[in-house]
Amino acid sequence: MRPFVHIIRLLLILGSALPFTTHAQKETVLGLEGDWYVFSLKHFKSSFRHELGLSMFSHFYRSPDQAIHYEVDDGIAYPQPVYNRGFGLMSLHYEPRFRLIEYRNWASLSLDVPLVWSLSLVDLTTEDGFRYSADTVSTAAFNAGIFAVERETGLGLGHLEAGAMLSINLWQGATYENTFPLGLSIGAGVHRMFAPVQMNFIAGYERVEYQEFTAWWTPVSRLSLHYRGVVLSYTIGVNPTLVYYESLNSKRAVYTNTYNRFSLSLRIGR
């Protein structure tokens, strides 16, 4: 439910930004007749565009806190959030965009479906680098003072994302007809994350053991700048959680449920 609240908020905020687009501007910049167009399969070609993109070393995420690790010291258990975190070495994305509503030839509202494959290093960890294990501690071990099991290596490699975003597009790329070289898109939506794609089979980690930690939703927003067929985008998680905790008597805080990605895309077609 929460992502939809964010989308509505986004639209309201964007609505307040529209007065920047004056009537005079529309005529001088674009100089075309005003009209509304709604997505139609009959004119699919003009209502659809897609992009291929790439991110290099600029794609990071943290899942919402998915478990708690307890650091026990001197009779006190200090809970610490555990999250799935990934660092993308290289991410490729393909993104079909459906123009749902178009206004004249310079603005549109589109439904974007980003599909991302990332060669990333994925782990399930705390801020201090404790590698959380799904293995439970036996009663005998617990009695011997072992309160948690730690994995020795990373959880796996690669992650996938599939998202749905609503974007407001202006000028370049906003409509099929627009030929202005510069463009701007602002969007918001949700991504479904799947991480890792490949479990660390060398260490023998089984997906079934970590099922609850390997998929989640994250709400995001995105700002894209277009120059002709090139799109530079920054996507950010919009609902991070700041978790306060204590670690051996020091106050700490860590952000979870974060998402950051810079990407460079090439538009395919118009």
Partner: peptide, 10 residues
Amino acid sequence: LSGCIEEKNL
């Protein structure tokens, strides 16, 4: 939008 930060205490 990115200011929608939730807070949690452990």
